[in-house]
């Protein structure tokens, strides 16, 4: 049985670990709130883009456009969004699991694939794989990636799609449903799709300069960038909420461990006292005889 001194040291070390995990939990909670708020701000952007696209599609402009071209999928580009740091619970392993499922599916159907990894943990994993080509790695993006950071990723995806290198572009990311519920999903961003919305009279009557083709090109590009942005923000919000829960569990476990150790320490101490008393009274007995 360990001595009281050893137990005391262990309790102290568990307590300081608990302090750290508690702090990380609070930090993750506030970061999650911020990411959650940011998650909503891109809605007007996609809304406006969808409105324009709905009209342009009704004019038949999307039929012949390169970004809308639906081909038989022989190869595709997967964009995997993971986290840069660890200690985020099952966040990365969930994403990786879904990603592996996609790869296995491609193997079965004979589809070739390439991968763009976002986040250090995702890129570490992808680098070890042999059956996918790495088209790009992006690490340590900011929590709200600006346009210029997104553009590098988007341009790679678009060029590969337009040149015919790949026939589809999918994003594997964690959808943020609520702070306790996140789901890994795969969404297709190319060929482009959009949700039809109501079109105002002004858009119908407007003049398109230089021509509908160019406008369509720009609008579609922006819709895709909004989709990627949304996926990145969802990923961030999910990452932080999973981290928060993981750290909460760690804090709870530490508290439990401290309680158990304290009880054990008290037992050992009491045992020692009892033993000493027994020895003293034994000695007194022996003397009086």
């Amino acid at each position: 049985m360990p001595s009281t001194r050893q137990l005391k040291l262990r309790i102290r070390s568990v307590k300081s670990t608990k302090q750290i995990t508690k702090a990380m939990q609070l930090v993750a909670a506030s970061k999650m709130r911020r990411a959650q708020e940011a998650d909503k701000v891109s809605a007007p952007y996609s809304q406006a883009a969808s409105e324009l696209l709905t009209y342009l599609a009704s004019q038949g402009a999307t039929k012949s456009h390169a970004l809308f071209e639906t081909r038989k999928v022989k190869s595709r580009l997967l964009i995997v969004i993971g986290s840069d740091k660890g200690l985020v619970g099952a966040y990365n392993s969930n994403v990786v699991k879904a990603y592996i499922r996609e790869l296995q599916q491609d193997d079965k159907t004979g589809v070739k694939n390439e991968t763009i990894a976002i986040g250090h943990k995702a890129s570490q994993f992808v680098a070890r794989l042999k059956d996918t080509a790495v088209a790009g790695v992006y690490e340590y993006l900011s929590d709200q990636p600006a346009g210029s950071e997104l553009r590098a990723i988007l341009d790679t995806a678009r060029n590969k799609f337009v040149s015919g290198d790949v026939d589809a572009v999918d994003i594997v990311y964690t959808e943020f449903l609520s702070s306790i519920n996140q789901k890994v999903t795969t969404v297709r961003i190319l060929p482009a799709g959009f949700t039809e919305t109501e079109v105002t009279r002004e858009i119908r009557e407007a003049l398109y300069e230089p021509d509908t083709e160019t406008v369509l090109d720009a609008v579609t590009y922006r819709l895709i960038s909004a989709q990627l942005f949304q996926a990145l923000l969802d990923g961030k919000a999910s990452e932080y909420s999973m981290q928060m829960i993981a750290m909460k569990n760690a804090t709870d476990n530490a508290s439990e461990l401290v309680d158990d150790l304290t009880i054990e320490m008290n037992k050992v101490r009491q045992g020692a006292i009892t033993q000493e008393l027994a020895e003293i009274s034994g000695g007194v007995e022996a003397l009086s005889e």
Binding site: A206, L207, T214
Partner: peptide, 9 residues
């Protein structure tokens, strides 16, 4: 204000 409807880049 009152500009002709226009969509451009």
């Amino acid at each position: 204000p009152g500009h002709e409807p226009l969509v451009t880049i």
